[in-house]
Amino acid sequence: MSGAEAEAGAGNASIALKGLRGAIARNMAAGWQAPRVAIGIDVDISACRQWLRTQAVAEGQARPTITACVLRATALALAGHPRMNALLKDNVVECQSAVHLGLAVALDEGLMVPVIRDAETKPVAQLAQETRALAAGTRAGQLPPRAYQGATFTVTNLGMAGIDWFTPVLNPPQVGILGVSSVRERAVVRDGQLAIAAMTTLTLVFDHRAIDGYPAALFLQAVKARLEAPGSL
Score class of each variant (00 low, 15 high):
Leu170Trp: 05
Ala195Gln: 13
Ser182Met: 07
Pro173Thr: 01
Pro172Asp: 02
Gly176Ile: 03
Val189Phe: 08
Gln221Gly: 13
Leu178Trp: 06
Asp212Tyr: 02
Val169Ser: 07
Ala161Val: 08
Ile211Asn: 00
Phe166Lys: 05
Ala161Trp: 13
Ala195Val: 09
Thr167Glu: 10
Asp191Phe: 04
Ala217Glu: 09
Met199Ile: 13
Ser182Gln: 13
Leu220Asp: 04
Pro172Gly: 08
Ser181His: 11
Ser182His: 09
Pro215Trp: 10
Arg186Leu: 13
Leu218Asp: 08
Phe206Val: 00
Ala210Cys: 10
Ile163Ser: 02
Ser181Lys: 04
Phe206Gly: 00
Arg190Lys: 15
Pro173Trp: 02
Ala216Lys: 02
Ala222Asp: 15
Thr203Phe: 08
Gln193Cys: 08
Ala222Ser: 15
Leu218Ser: 07
Met199Lys: 06
Asp207Asn: 11
Ala161Gly: 00
Gly192Lys: 12
Thr201Ser: 13
Gly162Glu: 01
Tyr214Arg: 14
Ala210Val: 07
Arg186Ala: 14
Arg190Val: 15
Asp212Phe: 05
Ser181Gln: 03
Arg209Lys: 14
Phe219His: 09
Gly179His: 06
Tyr214Gln: 15
Gln221Glu: 10
Ala161Pro: 01
Phe219Ala: 09
Phe219Val: 05
Gln174Arg: 02
Asp207Val: 04
Thr167Cys: 05
Ala195Thr: 11
Ala197Val: 13
Ala198Asn: 14
His208Gln: 13
Leu178Ser: 05
Leu194Val: 15
Gln193Arg: 14
Gly176Phe: 00
Ile177Met: 03
Val180Phe: 04
Asn171Val: 01
Ala187Gln: 10
Phe166Pro: 10
Ala197Cys: 12
Phe166Val: 03
Val169Ala: 08
Phe206Asn: 00
Asn171Gly: 01
Val183Ala: 06
Leu170Arg: 10
Pro173Ser: 02
Thr200Asp: 01
Ala210Leu: 09
Ala216Ile: 10
Val169Asn: 07
Val188Cys: 11
Trp165Phe: 12
Asp191Leu: 11
Gly162Tyr: 03
Asn171Gln: 11
Thr201Arg: 15
Arg190Glu: 14
Leu194His: 12
Leu202Tyr: 10
Asp164Tyr: 02
Ile177Arg: 01
Val223Ile: 15
Arg184Thr: 14
Pro215Gln: 07
Leu218His: 11
Phe206Trp: 03
Leu220Cys: 08
Ile196Tyr: 12
Ala198Cys: 14
Gly192His: 08
Gly179Leu: 07
His208Leu: 08
